[in-house]
Computed example of a mutant assay.
Amino acid sequence: MKLFLDCEFTQLNRDTKLISLALVSEAGHEYYVELTDTYLVGDCSDFVIQNVLPQLNLAAHGQTLVEAQTSLLAFLSHLEVPLEICSDAPEWDWDFFCQLAYVNHRWPANVANRPTNLIVLFRHLEADDIDNVTLPELPHHALLDARLLADLYRRLTAVSHRGTERG
């Protein structure tokens, strides 16, 4: 089963810190967390301060890093089939996922230990198929973005399957 991953983080540099992380499965299962102890507002770029932080709801979704590790592993453990983590920005999101998933030198047994790059996956679909799909502007909210990626994947693979049925 594919899980669509999206993260929000403080800025686009090597010292970036995780703000929020979301996973949405092909079947519609969702995991979302906002971290309370991994960053300070001063760590954030102006873009993040203006576009990401105002969307957070720490009262509803806030967890410490240790709590987030526990809740993520519990979420993953309830999904028994082999899990494939898919991201449109694995060069950023994968390390953050690993921070939460790799605990006590153990990797979740039901999770592939490398990400799938959605951009590469989407390119494998026929060019005609992607023309029929409007690419949304991502709202810079991890859960909403992960939902959009999952929906886009569903729509593109549905179009691709219809194309192979016709051929």
Rank of each mutant, 00 (worst) to 15 (best):
V41I: 09
L65Q: 14
N57V: 08
R123I: 00
S45A: 14
W107A: 11
N110T: 03
V52F: 00
P139T: 12
R106F: 02
V133C: 07
H61A: 07
L138S: 14
V81F: 10
L40H: 09
A22I: 04
L100Q: 02
E137N: 13
G28Y: 11
V133W: 09
L56P: 02
Q69G: 05
E84Y: 13
I85G: 06
L72C: 08
L118W: 02
L135H: 14
L35C: 14
D131S: 08
T64F: 08
L118G: 00
A60Y: 07
L76W: 07
P54I: 03
F75G: 02
L73G: 00
N57D: 15
N104T: 01
V24A: 09
Y32N: 13
L21W: 13
E30D: 10
L40W: 04
E137H: 14
V41L: 09
F97N: 00
A127H: 14
T70F: 06
F97A: 01
R106C: 06
V120I: 08
E30F: 11
Y102I: 05
V111E: 10
H61G: 04
Y31K: 08
V48N: 02
V81Y: 13
L56G: 03
Q50M: 04
L121G: 00
D37H: 14
L76F: 10
V111Y: 10
V120N: 06
F97S: 00
V120G: 01
G62I: 10
A68M: 07
N113M: 13
D128P: 01
D95L: 08
L138I: 10
E67Y: 06
L40G: 01
V52K: 00
Y32S: 11
F47D: 04
F47W: 06
N117H: 11
W92E: 01
A22C: 03
F97Y: 11
H61Q: 08
E34R: 14
D37N: 15
L138T: 13
A109D: 13
A101E: 02
Q55K: 13
L53H: 00
L118R: 02
L53E: 00
P108G: 04
Q55N: 04
I85E: 06
G42L: 07
H78W: 07
H78D: 10
F122D: 02
T116H: 01
L72M: 07
Q69D: 05
A22M: 04
L73A: 03
R123C: 04
I85Y: 04
L21N: 12
Y39F: 15
P139G: 12
Q63E: 12
T64K: 08
T134P: 03
R106V: 09
V111L: 14
F75M: 05
Q50S: 05
H61E: 07
W94Y: 12
V133Y: 11
E84H: 11
L23M: 12
R114N: 02
P54D: 02
W92I: 03
A60L: 14
T38I: 12
L72H: 09
A112Y: 07
Y39C: 12
E126L: 09
A68C: 06
L125C: 11
A27D: 10
T38Y: 13
E84S: 07
W107N: 12
L121D: 03
L118Y: 02
V41S: 05
I119N: 08
V48A: 03
N104C: 01
V120W: 03
L73R: 15
L35S: 13
P82Q: 13
